[in-house]
Amino acid sequence: MSRVVLEGLEFHARHGVYDTEGVLGARFVVDAELYYDFAGLPDELSAAVNYAAVYIAIQEEVTGKRHQLIEVLADRIARRILSDQPGLARVTVRVHKPFAPLPGVFRDVFAELTLEQEDR
């Protein structure tokens, strides 16, 4: 299966369990892997998955509504992408929260979800 990857999409949003996260917000980073068979695809946007539209959908989901859990945000994004892009066979979404309020040194925290078209 072939794929197109949108990696490192950064947004400022207010997700999190704590009140301060809702007030101050933080940086969230999203990766989306879009799986569909594009071998032999004609060179026309109408025949492909429109990843500019996917970007806008991700941006709306991340910045539009506050969620306590990044797991829920990942689910909302994955389901939206599959709904908006019926040509996709599968999508993998990662929502990174690199500044999660944890009591230690860490590089990243992320939630990852893979859904197939029939899962939505």
Rank of each mutant, 00 (worst) to 15 (best):
M1C: 05
S2C: 10
R3N: 12
V4L: 15
V5G: 11
V5L: 14
V5A: 15
E7R: 15
G8S: 04
L9A: 05
E10R: 15
F11K: 01
H12E: 11
H12Q: 09
A13H: 05
H15T: 03
G16H: 09
G16Q: 08
E21G: 07
V23A: 11
L24Y: 10
A26V: 04
A26C: 01
R27P: 00
R27V: 08
R27E: 11
V29E: 03
V29G: 02
V29A: 02
V30C: 10
A32H: 13
L34T: 08
Y35D: 07
Y36G: 10
D37E: 15
F38T: 11
A39T: 15
G40I: 10
L41C: 15
D43Q: 09
E44D: 13
S46M: 01
A47D: 15
A48S: 15
V49C: 13
N50T: 05
A52Y: 07
A53M: 02
A53P: 01
V54K: 02
Y55H: 14
A57W: 00
E60Y: 00
E60W: 00
E61K: 08
G64L: 02
G64F: 02
K65D: 03
R66F: 00
R66A: 03
Q68H: 13
I70A: 00
E71I: 06
V72F: 06
V72E: 13
V72P: 00
D75G: 09
R76Y: 06
R76A: 12
I77W: 10
I77H: 07
A78D: 03
A78I: 08
A78Q: 04
R79H: 04
R79T: 04
R79W: 07
R79K: 13
I81V: 12
I81G: 00
D84Q: 07
D84K: 09
G87W: 05
G87Y: 06
L88V: 14
A89M: 11
T92K: 12
R94A: 12
V95F: 10
H96A: 09
A100Y: 04
L102Q: 07
L102H: 07
L102G: 03
L102E: 05
G104H: 09
V105L: 14
F106M: 02
R107H: 11
D108F: 06
F110Q: 11
A111L: 07
E112H: 05
E116Q: 14
E116K: 13
Q117H: 14
E118Q: 14
D119K: 06
R120M: 11
R120T: 13
R120V: 15
R120I: 15
R120H: 04
